[in-house]
Amino acid sequence: MRVRSTQDVAAGAVVIAFAVAVLAALSRIPTTKYQAISPDLFPRVCAFGLIAGGIALLVRGFARAGPAFAWAPWRGVVLVVLSVVLFGLCTPRFGYGVGAFLAVVVAGFATRDVKPLKLVVFAALLIAFSVVLFSVVLKVPMPAFTLRGFGL
């Protein structure tokens, strides 16, 4: 047996792992007697269907030639995810203006042709635009700049 499509084999393995995790989580739901339909029945049926699909993907990965699995370039992924997480961490404490500025600057480094100074200026302009749009025009009840959690 030789792997003929690493993409199919990887997909099959991931799908089966996901379905097994779902089944494990569902098994913690207490089942009551005298209840025609337990709340875990439907997702359980789907998870078994998913396992069948995962096995089929594995089989196909060994039986038929197909595309290979390729890794994503990590730089872009890490920086974009980091920028979104930073927004989530900073916004409740400092307001969305600060969170958004950090997010734009960090995300901007995800491409190779980044020009740091221009990026900072661009981020500042973008934040000014968002504050006018969201806080002034749309009057979204969300602080743009604040200090919370520092006893202030």
Binding site: S83, V84, L89, T91, A103, V104, A107, L119, F134
Partner: peptide
């Protein structure tokens, strides 16, 4: 970065929950 920014602000304005982000 602009798209990312609008996604973040748009989503955060719904519930103001970092978990959503």
């Amino acid at each position: 970065p602009a798209i990312l920014l609008f996604c973040c602000i748009g989503l955060y304005s719904v519930n103001q929950l970092p978990a959503d982000i």
